[in-house]
Design a protein around this nucleic acid. Structure first.
Lengths: 226, 226
DNA sequence: TTCGATGCGGAGTGAATCGCTCCGCATCGA
DNA sequence: TCGATGCGGAGCGATTCACTCCGCATCGAA
């Protein structure tokens, strides 16, 4: 119980990271119905190992939420640190969309909120409010847009129904195309659909198979492991 | 079996409409995990009545999907009938977002696709392609935007995590505010966040409680009936 | 090489929920 | 009053859930 317990702690840490990553991924796909078995399988560990680290499913989600709140606050502060108000706002939005507080929304209300989480959320809200106000002062943000509007838009863009479907069906070969398509969508939503582009759309135009494939019967259910 | 079977057919039709509406609502909230019991309860009928009209859960979803495809095609044609290319495109997008093919996405691949459905989908795709091309010819649509981009954006905007959460918790008093907030988000996504507004944002600015309330413990689980 | 300790994967468990069936009852025209 | 009809929901077997527990592989120490 002294300093001698450095035995294989690296593997422990690695497993823990894999567990958290797997939990976030599975949660994004299955929502609140995500099962511990699928999380453990995706992380490549047994359920026993999961329960040795987290006493309950809720405790895992709680930890996951705390990490997301930290990322969220970091992203806002990074945005504030940028000189260009618009670039800072976009940086925050992009980072939040990617690490997805929106994907954590389904578990909201399923566990107790700790004081630490409340404080992190408040600090994040303050930073975002400052980000929005600064953008308004520079007149680069549409008049009337509030911080709540921004947060809700981010939440709306956080989930990716297309990628979830692909993952459920195990169509990994289309994953890159789906990622590209999503980047375009986000760019459009942030920059606007009207003809007055802030630049050319990134990447290639997505093909129709992204739209048609999900209607085909899943020829192979997701192995849910490895 | 002749023309004399008009007995109470109005109530039957009313029940059927209630069933379809309930199914769409429950599906939007619970996704593919939607249970027949919750659908029947929300429609205010017993599961027996549901199974008298639809032999299986998949058959109900199939019918639901067919109706959505029809609405989808109608919306596209209505958009084409409008003189202003931009207004037509927005009309289609708004109608599609509201009647939500996106909320049907979770059941994609869970039942067989009939020929009628395939044909409706193809006709819809053609109409949307024409809508997009016309907007491009009039130079009112951002360069590089394809029909698939548009469809994916519509799908992205179709689901409403906020409203789903409210419904799950039974907070009906915030429903109007959530609806208003969603209208703003959609307007922003379609018009763009950058300072060059196409007009003032509609409705009132949403309050912070929309964002904080979902973290509060649900003081009353959804009664799921009536 | 042998031994105790440690953390591992996953079969097993009771509870909950699923889609679906079936039956008693209310409500109608005759 | 009586047969017919459609209704709501209790009940059924099957499935899935969160969680427990145990045999085994792998390590340092002797």
């Amino acid at each position: 119980m002294t300093a001698s317990r450095s035995w294989r702690s690296e593997e422990v840490a690695r497993n823990d990271r894999a567990l958290l990553r797997a939990a976030r991924e599975v949660l994004a796909v299955d929502g609140a119905h995500a099962s511990v078995a699928s999380i453990a399988a995706r992380a490549g560990v047994g359920v026993g190992s999961l329960y040795r680290r987290y006493r309950t499913k809720q405790e895992l989600f709680q930890r996951l939420c705390l990490i997301a709140l930290r990322d969220y606050l970091d992203a806002a502060n990074e945005g504030l640190a940028m000189d260009d108000p618009w670039a800072g706002l976009v940086h925050y939005a992009m980072a939040s969309i990617r690490s997805g507080p929106g994907s954590l929304a389904p578990v909201a209300g399923t566990f107790d909120v700790t004081d630490e989480m409340t404080e992190l959320a408040e600090r994040g809200d303050r930073a975002v409010a400052e980000l929005v106000e600064r953008a308004h002062r520079a007149r680069v943000l549409r008049a009337g847009v509030t911080a709540v509007d921004l947060e809700l838009l981010i939440e709306q863009l956080s989930k990716s129904p297309l990628q979830e479907h692909l993952q459920r069906q195990g169509r990994t070969e289309l994953y890159d195309a789906a990622l590209n398509a999503r980047e375009r969508i986000i760019a459009v939503a942030l920059d606007g659909l009207r003809a007055a582009p802030a630049g050319p759309l990134p990447g290639q135009a997505p093909g129709y198979e992204l739209f048609t494939m999900r209607w085909a019967p899943p020829e192979d259910e997701q192995p849910a492991s490895e």
